[in-house]
Amino acid sequence: MRTEPKARLKTSAMIASFADPGQKTAPAPFGHALVKAARENERIAGLTADLGKYTDMHIFAQAYPERFFQMGMAEQLLFGAAAGMAQAGLVPFASTYAVFAARRAYDFLCLDIAEPNLNVNIVGGLPGLATGYGPSHQATEDMAIFRGMPNLTIVDPCDPVDIEQAVPQLAASGGPTYLRLLRGNVPTVLDEYDYTFELGKAKVLRGGNDVVFVSSGLMTMRALAAAKELAAHNVDPAVVHTPTIKPFDAATVLAEVDTDRLVITLENHTVVGGLFETVASAAVRAGISRRILPIGLPDEFLHAGALPTLHERYGLTVERIKQTVLAEL
């Protein structure tokens, strides 16, 4: 008797999309946003370190080949050249993987770009746990590294709405910026809320009586989904989206933290040095005595594997968030 082989789930350790089946997505939002911004600002230039396709910079390269520069596998050269362009009056967006920007080229970013406060926009692909390739490519500590750099603005967008609105604001911001890139087919969620991105501002997306989620990046998407599922358990969470990590909008966030509700931070980053410690520090400075519970990545080198499996393992899924909340209430 002949039996048909069972269908095998196809996945990849390098998968960069975190969209669920059937979820609404937008393709390459950063690349298209940069092209749109470049139409309105002829000073915008694009650079990459051999990763145009994998940071969506190839969209810009196709539209403006005369304003695109391929620097090869040389991240220090990438940012040194971007600094020179900014000194000459251009507005460069320089893309590579977040691990290479944060770890390999830190000194160049610090002394060539941040110290003279140049308008260089650093675009870091695969932030946090956005790949299964293991510690060599998982930028779990990039925000912790960059938060201590003076003059540097840090943005952790949730979706294409954030990215599309952030790009022109980053170009106009004057000083250096770091954008944690979501690439490929990126889920769109913020269009369902009365939301606009404002650099340096947090936004309350949803009110709630029992829990306050303070989130950034893709974890805002997960926070909103968990809030809907928790309603079936008579739990009503608020969601505060904080796309700008530095400078931090303490006033908006602390107004939600300083209540009797359970406060949970959610981030696609190690719990060391990222959103959790930013919120906790702001609360202490303001004299607010509240327990703040972090949901984020552990202080360890992570495993390699399929991205959905890793998100479940390290507690970033909607189901794991829901379980954490119910265990605390």
Rank of each mutant, 00 (worst) to 15 (best):
M1N: 12
R2F: 10
T3Q: 14
K6E: 15
L9M: 14
K10E: 15
S17H: 09
Q23L: 09
A28H: 12
P29M: 02
F30P: 04
F30V: 05
F30W: 09
F30G: 06
V35Q: 05
K36P: 03
A38H: 14
E40F: 08
G46P: 08
L47G: 00
T48M: 01
D50V: 00
Y54R: 05
Y54A: 10
I59Q: 09
Y64T: 02
E66H: 12
R67P: 04
R67K: 15
F69N: 03
Q70F: 11
Q70N: 14
M73W: 13
E75Q: 12
M85I: 07
V91I: 12
F93R: 09
S95P: 10
S95G: 11
A98Y: 11
V99M: 09
A102R: 11
R104K: 14
A105P: 05
Y106S: 04
Y106Q: 09
L111H: 15
E115C: 08
P116W: 14
L118M: 05
L118P: 02
N121L: 06
I122T: 01
G124D: 04
G124F: 04
G125T: 00
L129Q: 00
L129P: 05
G132F: 06
H137Q: 15
T140H: 07
D142Y: 01
G148T: 04
L152H: 08
L152K: 02
V155P: 04
D156K: 01
D156I: 04
P157H: 07
C158Q: 01
V167H: 14
P176Y: 08
Y178R: 01
L179P: 00
V189D: 01
L190Y: 08
Y195K: 04
F197Q: 13
F197Y: 15
F197W: 14
L199R: 00
G208R: 03
V212E: 10
F213R: 13
V214T: 03
S215V: 04
S215L: 03
T220R: 11
R222Y: 10
R222K: 09
R222P: 00
A223D: 05
L224V: 13
A225L: 14
L230M: 14
A232S: 15
P237D: 15
A238W: 05
I245C: 00
D249F: 11
A251K: 15
L254S: 04
A255Q: 11
V257T: 09
R261W: 08
L262G: 07
H269K: 01
H269P: 02
T270H: 04
G273W: 05
T278R: 07
A283E: 13
A283K: 13
R285G: 07
A286H: 06
R291D: 15
L293I: 09
I295C: 06
L297A: 02
L297T: 01
P298K: 10
P298F: 07
P298D: 10
H303W: 00
T317R: 02
I321K: 04
Q323G: 06
T324G: 01
L326A: 13
A327I: 08
L329P: 08
